[in-house]
Computed example of a mutant assay.
Amino acid sequence: MRCTRLCSTLMLLALFLLSCSSGTDTLQQPLPGTLPALQGEWVNMVVEIPAGTNKKIEYDKASGQFRADQRNGADRIIDFLPYPGNYGFIPGTALPVADGGDGDAVDVLLISESLPTGTQIVVRPVGALRLLDEGQVDVKVIAIPADSALQVISPADFTDFSIRYDGARHLIESWFLQYDGLGAHQLQGWVDEERALAFIKASVAE
C-alpha cells in the first residue's frame, strides 16, 4: 500500500513538472537571431524603437539584449521629432557590403500603434525608401501589420499608399532625411511593395 501511494505521488509529480515545462515552452518566443526573415508570404520584424520615442535603441547580437545606441560615449537621443512608427529590423537578413550596404539587417518602419521594444510581429511591406548614408546604401522598408486588426492605415499596395496616404509618405521621407541632421542622408527614391519584398528576400543571409 505504501509503495502504491509513493508511486502514485511520484507519477503525479512527474506529470505536474511535465505540464509546467510544456506550458513554459509554449510561452517562449524565438530569439531574433533564430527568427526567420520570412513568415509565409510576409516577413517577420523585431521592434527596437517604439513609435513616439526619441531614444535610439539597438539589438546587440553578441549579448542578445536591446541596448541604447551610443554616440560620443553617451546614450543617443534623436534631436528631432520622435520616431513616426515602430522602428526595427528583419531578422536573418543583411545588406551585403559588396553591394554598397553596411552589413546590418534590413531596417523597417512599421506604421501602427506603439509597440514595446522586443516585440516580434509579422508585417506586410507597402514600399521602401532608398537613401544614402555616408556613401552606403540605406534602405528603409515601410510596412503595416499583416494582421488587419492591428492596422491603423490599410493601403493595398504602394500605389494606394501614395494616393490615399501621400501626406504620410512625405512625412516619413522628410523625417528620415532630417532626423540626423540636414544633409546626413541623401534621397535615392521609393520602390513599390513588390521590389521591397524582392529586396528583403535577396538580403536573407545564407
Rank of each mutant, 00 (worst) to 15 (best):
R164C: 08
V126R: 01
D60Y: 15
F89C: 05
I90C: 06
I49N: 11
A205V: 13
W175R: 14
D69Q: 10
S19A: 13
L132K: 08
R169E: 11
T117P: 03
D99Q: 11
N44K: 11
L187A: 08
S154C: 07
H185L: 15
A149G: 01
Q151P: 01
G23H: 10
P30V: 13
S174V: 06
L35Q: 09
D180P: 02
M1A: 11
L6V: 13
T53K: 05
G181M: 07
D192L: 04
Q39D: 14
D69C: 05
G189V: 07
G100D: 00
V46N: 13
E41N: 10
V47H: 12
G127M: 02
D138L: 04
I57E: 10
A184I: 10
L18E: 15
G101L: 06
Y83N: 14
L131I: 00
T53C: 09
A98M: 12
V123D: 02
P145R: 05
T9A: 15
F161R: 06
S63R: 13
S114T: 01
V152P: 00
V108C: 01
V122N: 06
A94V: 11
T93E: 12
S63G: 13
V47S: 11
G100C: 04
Q120K: 13
L10W: 06
G189K: 11
D25C: 14
D160E: 02
P155Q: 08
C20I: 12
Q120M: 11
V152D: 00
R169L: 12
G181V: 03
L38I: 12
T9H: 15
Q39T: 10
D102Q: 08
L81N: 03
W175V: 12
G33K: 10
E194T: 15
L95G: 06
G88Y: 06
I142N: 00
T34A: 08
A198P: 05
F80V: 00
S148F: 12
S22F: 07
V43Q: 06
S22E: 08
A205E: 13
Q120C: 02
R169W: 05
T24H: 08
A198T: 13
P145K: 04
D192G: 09
T93M: 15
L81P: 01
A14M: 05
H185S: 05
P84I: 03
V106Y: 02
R169D: 07
V126K: 01
T117Q: 03
I200E: 07
S8T: 09
A98Y: 06
D75W: 04
Q120T: 08
S21M: 02
G189E: 11
I200Y: 06
L171C: 05
L27A: 09
F66R: 04
S114C: 00
T24E: 09
T53E: 09
P91C: 10
Q28A: 13
P84S: 03
D138W: 04
R2C: 05
R130P: 01
L182V: 14
G73E: 10
V47R: 10
A196L: 07
M45F: 09
L150R: 09
F161H: 05
N54S: 04
V47P: 08
T34N: 11
S19Q: 13
E173C: 03
D192M: 03
L6M: 11
S148M: 07
Q29M: 14
L27V: 07
I78A: 02
